[in-house]
């Protein structure tokens, strides 16, 4: 009887958890460990012979790879600006949409809509807007902002990607901020109003501290989206002009699949993983410590 029960527990564990464990192990764990190993080798992806090179790949990347360094600075700069703008806009939209506007539902639909379209298609759509659409607006209005060679120079191409990223992601963060704003207790807001607090004071001293849990999530999402960006700049600028908008993800891709330096590519991938893990953990710790309860 006892033996039988233990057997059936084993079978149940296998039936319920087994499939998830197998797929997870095959697709994430094995490649991750293999990648760790390959990052210490000169693997070229094709030949069966793989030689151990120790820390050479890492040394090469950290001391002698200006393209990787540039792609890292591009990604870092983009992440900072992208995260700030998309959160500020997302919060602002949410803040006004929680007021009693007649067109509230329509507005929410519009602001969220860009997000359901994938980065690759969005990049192509905006390529047309920057090349032809902006020029047409510039001709009609005479505003020089629209007549800039948007995708042609390093500086404007950078801002072009920031614009599209913010347009795409602000609506998603808005949805999260809206639900958080709706949970701010009405009585606290009313009490503050009766006490004569200005709107700015209410926002700064009551609303923002109370929505910090949403901010934790939104910052986390925005950081990981922008740090891992690949599709959007692939279709919008192909990393150009002159490689100035090549993100780290793209650099890793090119190292392996264009230059066939798989060993070097996996070492970059490991460095990338460590950076993402450290930054997101720090951010979550930091914003979590700012969370308060009503």
């Amino acid at each position: 009887m006892h033996q039988h029960k233990r057997n059936s527990q084993w079978t149940q564990q296998l039936v319920f958890v087994g499939p998830a464990l197998i797929f997870f192990a095959l697709i994430i764990v094995v490649p991750f460990l293999l990648g760790l190993y390959y990052s210490f080798t000169d693997w070229n992806g094709v030949s069966g012979e793989v030689a151990w090179v120790g820390l050479d790949n890492y040394k090469q990347i950290l001391t002698n790879d200006t393209v990787f360094r540039d792609s890292f600075w591009f990604t870092a700069k983009f992440t900072v600006l992208g995260v700030v703008f998309t959160n500020v806009l997302g919060f602002a939209l949410a803040y006004f949409l929680t007021k009693k506007l007649k067109s509230r539902n329509f507005l929410r639909t519009v602001f969220f809509m860009p997000n359901v379209i994938g980065g690759l298609l969005l990049g192509f759509i905006w390529q047309f807007i920057f090349v032809k659409g902006f020029a047409a607006i510039g001709d009609v209005t005479g505003i020089s902002f629209f007549n800039l060679p948007w995708l042609g120079t390093e500086n404007t191409a950078f801002w072009a990607i920031v614009i599209v990223f913010v347009w795409q992601t602000a609506g998603y963060l808005m949805v999260i901020y809206i639900s958080s704003l709706n949970n701010v207790p009405k009585d606290i807001l009313e009490a503050a109003e009766i006490d004569g607090a200005s709107r700015g004071q209410v926002l700064r001293s009551i609303i923002i501290p109370l929505i910090m849990p949403a901010a934790t999530v939104c910052l986390f999402l925005a950081i990981s989206w922008s740090f891992k960006m690949f599709d959007l700049n692939l279709s919008l600028t192909k990393g150009g002009p002159f490689g100035s908008t090549e993100s780290v993800a793209m650099n890793i891709y090119n190292e392996a699949f264009s230059k066939n330096r798989y060993g070097l590519g996996t070492a970059k991938a490991i460095i990338f993983f460590i950076i993402v893990a450290v930054i997101t953990t720090l951010q979550v710790r930091l914003t979590k410590s700012k969370e308060v309860e009503a």
């Binding site: 490649p31 991750f32 990981s224 740090f227 993402v276």
Partner: peptide, 17 residues
């Protein structure tokens, strides 16, 4: 923990697997 791992950091060995 695996939720933090970016796709791009395992895509190269994934192709091999």
């Amino acid at each position: 923990a695996a939720m933090v791992v970016p796709f791009q950091s395992i895509m190269i060995p994934l192709v091999k697997v």
